[in-house]
Structure formats: C-alpha cells, structure tokens
Computed example of a mutant assay.
Amino acid sequence: MTIEEFMAAGAERFDGALLALWWDGKGSWEKAHEIAQDVSGSDGAWVHAYLHRKEGDEGNASYWYRRAGRTVAHGDLKAEWEAIVREMLDR
C-alpha cells in the first residue's frame, strides 16, 4: 500500500499505531494522540514520540523515542510521518 492509498482508505481499515497516523495525516492531532496513548509497545511509543515532536514538546518526545528504542528525530516532520507509515505498512 502506498502513502496515497493509505490516506485514501477509510479509518475502519486500520487500528493502533496506523490508525493514529491516519488521523494525524487527516489533520486531527488530538484524535491521533488519543489513540496513540492507548497503543502499547514500541510502535505506539514511536507514534507518540512523533506526535509530541510535532506538538513542539521536545522533552516529552525524547522520552517516547527512548521508549520506542528509536533515535530522536530532528528532520522534516512530514518525512518522518511518511517513514513511520511506510515501515508499519511494509510489515
């Protein structure tokens, strides 16, 4: 599935971390964060980290990147979002 197909699909096709990313891609940070908070494991932590970085809360983001076992991201937010989506879709 491509990024375009991911965004064109309905929310009902996804759950967990991918659902949170879908909502963020649709411009609903609040809904994405609400979902990400309830996703356990490293995927949930990674999406949670990305969302807090997007929010501008670097300290909280750093905590969640560590929980996810990921390096703290510093680049373009859109590029990070796409990289997370691609990795999760490719599994």
Rank of each mutant, 00 (worst) to 15 (best):
A83H: 08
A8I: 00
W81Y: 13
R86P: 00
D38M: 15
G75T: 01
A61L: 07
G69T: 07
G16W: 05
I35V: 10
E5K: 10
F6N: 00
I35H: 11
M7W: 07
F14A: 04
K31R: 13
I84H: 03
G41R: 11
A73M: 10
I84G: 01
D38S: 15
W22F: 05
E4R: 09
S62H: 09
A73T: 05
S42A: 12
A9E: 01
G25L: 00
G75R: 02
W64K: 05
S28T: 02
K26M: 05
R67W: 14
A49G: 10
A32K: 06
V39P: 02
L51S: 12
G10N: 10
A45M: 05
E82T: 11
G59M: 15
W64P: 06
A68H: 10
G44E: 02
E58N: 13
S42Q: 15
V72F: 15
R13H: 12
W46R: 06
A36I: 07
A68S: 13
R53E: 14
R66M: 15
I3F: 11
L19P: 14
W29S: 13
F6L: 01
G59P: 15
E30M: 09
G10R: 08
W64R: 07
E55A: 05
M88K: 08
L19E: 12
Y63E: 11
Y63S: 06
A32Y: 04
E58I: 12
E4W: 07
D38V: 15
V85G: 00
G69D: 12
V72I: 13
E87S: 13
L89V: 00
K26F: 01
A11G: 10
W81S: 09
M88E: 13
G75K: 03
R67C: 10
E5N: 08
V72K: 14
L77A: 03
A11C: 14
G10L: 04
R86Y: 02
G27M: 04
A36T: 05
M1Q: 01
G59Q: 11
Q37P: 08
G44K: 01
V39C: 09
D76W: 00
D76R: 00
R86V: 07
W64F: 10
M88L: 14
E34P: 12
L77E: 02
